[in-house]
């Protein structure tokens, strides 16, 4: 038999899954995750209480670097590498460089945000043990799923099962992968 990955419970409303997550956290469970069809307000703060500061910081850093890079290629082109005298205007004509600097800054920022989002969420990851659960497919549609993973310190399959029953889970399933 395959190893036990965790136990999942299926709830039918956003409020129920939020209550369940809060209760599990209160009882000391740490290695659990909720899978929902849309972002449930406040659920992420219950499961991951530390605020996500990395992504905005990354995007800001990318904006600064992107602007510097955008300005530099124009400065290097017009002032250092291929100086062209157009009506006596300065080689480093910064007002003319502003537009492209702005665009390249935004491009780098968005690219950093997009790839940073994937990296921080550890995507692409085409396989995950939780996909083995039959009930999981509905988490992308109309059901709210919580999975307590077997790696949790306090994990005990029968206790977890009872816990979910008390919380009013619609369906409970062991995930083996």
């Amino acid at each position: 038999m395959k190893a036990l990955f965790g136990v999942i419970a299926v709830f039918d409303t956003a409020e129920a899954v939020k209550n369940a997550a809060a209760r599990l956290r209160q009882q000391g469970y740490r290695t659990f995750e909720a899978y929902t069809p849309y972002p449930v307000e406040g659920l992420d703060r219950i499961i991951h209480p530390r605020p996500q500061r990395l992504l905005p910081g990354l995007m800001f850093a990318a904006a600064v670097l992107g602007a510097a890079w955008g300005y530099w290629i124009q400065y290097w082109d017009e002032a250092l590498n291929y100086p062209l005298n157009v009506g006596g205007r300065p080689y480093n004509s910064w007002p003319a460089f502003a537009v492209s600097t702005f665009e390249l800054m935004l491009l780098v920022t968005i690219a950093a945000g997009f790839f940073g989002m994937l990296a921080v969420s550890r995507l692409p990851r085409l396989y995950h043990p939780v996909f083995e659960a039959r009930a999981f497919a509905r988490a992308s549609r109309d059901r709210f799923v919580i999975c307590i993973e077997a790696s949790d310190r306090r994990f005990d399959a029968s206790v977890v099962r009872r816990e979910f029953e008390q919380l009013g889970a619609e369906q409970i399933e062991e995930v083996r992968a």
Binding site: E33, Y35, M117, S121
Partner: peptide
Amino acid sequence: RGSSEEWRN
């Protein structure tokens, strides 16, 4: 997968 962390990010 629609995990709360993915949604937040």
